[in-house]
Simulated scan of single mutants.
Amino acid sequence: MQAKTIKANSNKAITKEIDKAISDGFKPTLAIVFASVKQDWKAVSDMLNKKEIVIFGATTAGEFIDGNIEEGSIVMMLLNINPNYFKLEFLETSTKTTLETAKKLGAIAKKAFPNPALIIATGGIFIDGEQIVDGIMQGFGEEATVFGGMAGDDLIAEKPIVFTNKKSKDNALLALIIDEDKIDVRGLATCGWNAIGTTKTVTKSDGNIVYTIDDKPALDMLMKYLGVDVKIDEDKEIVPFLNSWYYPLQLERDNGDTVIRATRFANSKERSLICTGSVPQGSKIKFSLPPEFDAIETVVSECASIKDNAQQRADALIMFSCVSRHLSFGALMSEEIEQVQNVWNAPMVGFFTYGEYGKSKIGTNEFHNNACCVVALKEK
């Protein structure tokens, strides 16, 4: 399997780059496309469709390719993977049907190959990422290999899109199902955010809405303990929580693992927090502060840990990195991306997400925030 990465700032320019990539006889069957909402991603999709290339696409909150960070651009990875080794699924959903849609995807993956792996992207703002993971596991019937990210829309927080050949939508689930008997798929989701203070209890919640923490309004608790503020618009009940990327909740699992939950919106009247994933009532949590720069070293080290040996390489790398990492690390973010790529020494494409899907370092599938999820592909 061969992979080529290209980038451009217009539909016309990306068409030229594709033509250049295939001029030597290279015949891609699959395109991984990550594009800013500022770009005409529909035209790009139409162009790839005419070339009979299968599309796995998502809009972004920033893009990167081979260690270089882009903004407002199109990045693409072209692969000549055998069409018999993968299957593309696009399923429309809603906030009320997320779990059932994800169950359907899990069942589809189970039937697709004896040993499938899923790389997914989800659109929409209010989709509960944890229901995506839970649904896939339920539909699959056991623990499956799942990695991916939530689409972005350049921090507008209105309509992130996923797209494939002749299909696109915000509230949708896109999945690249790969035959792991033919393609080795391995990855890891890792974070580095620092927990502070004592453990607290979520005393009232419903899905991804946290109403009270230690019997006090959740929004007031977060503002008090972290010293942050939320701009209240008297004309709006639901308001964006712009600081949420920096100060997420750390949710403690019974198995000793922790996952991050970003509080993307606040309800100014109910004084509640609306998270990107479920926070069960009774959960133990801690507040978080942005990581120190040594978190980059932790991410690189943990990404290297999934290799069988130091010399092992990949044919292609896909990276889903939370936009919070870019906001927190600034120019140093390119260092993390470049170092992770160097671990595998392979072409890389990725984007800054609104949430990440993947196995934690203890091996369980989770929906994450503020994490870096790396997927390495290698034909057997």
Rank of each mutant, 00 (worst) to 15 (best):
I337E: 00
L251S: 00
T122V: 12
L173R: 05
A376L: 00
G282Y: 06
C373I: 01
S283L: 07
E130L: 11
S244G: 15
A107N: 12
N208T: 06
R261T: 03
A144Y: 01
N171D: 15
V259Y: 07
A266G: 09
N243Y: 08
T60A: 04
G25M: 07
G62D: 04
Q281A: 12
N80M: 08
D154T: 00
K12D: 11
E335N: 14
I65A: 13
D215K: 13
G187T: 06
D19V: 03
Y211R: 13
R325G: 02
K169W: 00
R264Q: 15
G227K: 11
E336M: 07
M333D: 14
G62V: 05
E302K: 13
A331W: 06
R264Y: 11
T164P: 04
A121Q: 12
D235Q: 09
K7R: 14
A3Q: 01
A121C: 10
L91C: 03
G207K: 12
V75D: 07
K104D: 07
T5R: 10
D128M: 14
H368W: 03
D19Y: 07
F140R: 01
G227W: 06
I209E: 13
T203N: 03
N255F: 05
R186H: 09
A316H: 09
F163V: 14
I274C: 02
P83I: 10
L222C: 08
A61M: 04
D170C: 07
G187A: 07
Q39C: 02
K182D: 03
G72T: 00
I156R: 15
G148T: 02
E338L: 13
S36A: 03
F351G: 02
G330D: 12
P116M: 09
D233E: 10
N165Q: 01
A376W: 03
V185L: 07
A295C: 12
I55N: 05
K16V: 08
T98V: 15
E71N: 10
P291I: 04
S45Q: 11
A295S: 14
A3I: 05
E89V: 15
I6C: 01
C373F: 02
E356K: 05
E292V: 05
G330R: 14
A195L: 03
L273I: 08
A107S: 14
M77R: 01
I274Y: 03
E234M: 09
G152S: 10
D229I: 06
A304M: 10
G149C: 00
E142G: 06
V375S: 08
L251E: 04
L99W: 05
L327M: 15
G148L: 00
I318W: 01
T353M: 09
K159E: 10
V146A: 00
K12V: 03
S23Q: 12
A172R: 02
A262N: 13
V37S: 12
C373S: 13
L242T: 10
K307Q: 06
F367Y: 15
R271W: 06
C373K: 02
D40A: 09
I32L: 14
